[in-house]
Design a binder for these strands. Structure first.
Lengths: 236, 236
DNA sequence: GTCTATAAAGTGATAGAC
DNA sequence: GTCTATCACTTTATAGAC
């Protein structure tokens, strides 16, 4: 069942797995071809032979996670929509968005923490130019999820839903990539919840943030604007 | 009034401003000393002369924003707490956390978009080792803000509040660094709201996410657990 | 498919002239 | 303080032997 996340065996796989480990630890830009081939016990020329270039290997690593995770997100969304009698449960929609990111953690050679870091880096990456295929995938994902969210929250505009999904995506990526920093800086006050507990917490937070914000945003022009700090009028 | 964000003039300032522009565009790791000195119209040796090393310049750029922004966050939090009769308004606490990040945008030589990218990268950075001073600053910031949030939301545990602040920090950093991607992939459905509108939206989202989530999290053991996808039992 | 050797360019840093 | 020249490496990538 697991082919999408594991290419054909042999040295090519060893290179991918070595690259994953190092990318997770140090980021995509801080790892050289030599680091990777050394970690994999392969020759320096192996990366260029098997993947054409360093960038080819980066794209291979990203694709190995991006596509299956997004497919599973859509599959879980389908389930949530079929379960529902017209109106899907918001928490189930969010579950379908969040959980596939960590669902395959046990199948990886990486430790749980490194797996999370890698997935976070992949979904949060901006430097590397990924194939158009991936961009279309993301476009479709946003479309599908905001539509499902819109059924659960019929008073929201499409625009509003996209921005709130954007906030959610950010919280999620940050969770995957920066939680070691939280432990380092806020321990022991933040406790040591399992990933499961943290995901439940996150979904609850996101669901509540989505559910009751509409009136306030629409009524914003009626209240007097807060003027504590000069307001920023440009666009992002 | 602006000294903290502008060091003494001359070539040192030109170097910092050139570095900021390039770091904002490409990230801290993707810019060489030669790129920076070329952009600044300075000699290749200038960075090492003025900052000791490339890392010294990186730390200088980060400190120039980190410290003033965090100071302003605390000052605004003080105001919000003084305004309140014991219980601060949650939205004002969040405002104090969010708005200082973009409050100084007009004072920078950078375009608004690049300014946001830079600030997002600075607050989202993980590779570069920042001085202990900064780590203590962050610790203090978490402590102060979760305490204020706790007054507005007296039923939450400290642990719960830390995690929710963590989610909020992530959404915010993502907003600063990845919104160009959102425009690229979701336009025109996401509209072109001003930063002001987006911040209002974000604060509303975060406030709602904070306000009504408690019962569900505490009652989680009573409901039957969702078993759609295998649960993850490890810690982050 | 795997190796060595090497090309060609880029890296941060510094000694020493001015 | 600013410059040139240069050191000592590291980088990706490839040609060609095996």
């Amino acid at each position: 069942m697991n082919q999408t996340i594991v290419p054909n065996g042999g040295p090519k796989l060893r290179l991918v797995e070595a690259a994953e480990k190092l990318f997770a630890e140090k980021g995509f830009e801080a790892v050289s071809v030599r680091d990777i081939t050394k970690e994999a016990g392969a020759n320096v020329a192996a990366v260029n032979y098997h993947f054409g270039s360093r960038d080819g290997l980066v794209v291979a690593v990203m694709s190995r996670y991006l596509t299956p995770v997004n497919q599973e997100r859509l599959a879980e969304l389908d389930k949530a929509e079929r379960n529902a009698s017209g109106v899907p449960v918001l928490e189930e929609v969010l579950d379908a968005y969040v959980r596939p990111l960590v669902a395959h953690v046990g199948r990886s050679e990486l430790s749980e923490k490194l797996y999370c870091k890698l997935v976070g880096r992949i979904f949060g990456e901006q430097g590397v130019e990924v194939p158009n295929d991936i961009q279309n995938q993301t476009r479709n994902l946003i479309e599908r999820f905001t539509r499902a969210m819109g059924k659960a929250l019929p008073n929201y505009t499409q625009e509003e839903l996209i921005w709130r999904l954007h906030f959610i995506a950010g919280g999620l990526i940050h969770l995957l990539t920066h939680t070691d920093f939280l432990y380092r800086v806020a321990a022991p006050a933040c406790g040591t919840p399992t990933v499961e507990t943290t995901i439940e917490r996150f979904i609850q937070f996101a669901a509540d943030g989505l559910r009751s914000g509409l009136e306030a945003v629409e009524g914003e022009e009626e209240g007097e604007p807060k003027k504590k700090i000069p307001q920023a009028t440009f666009n992002f």
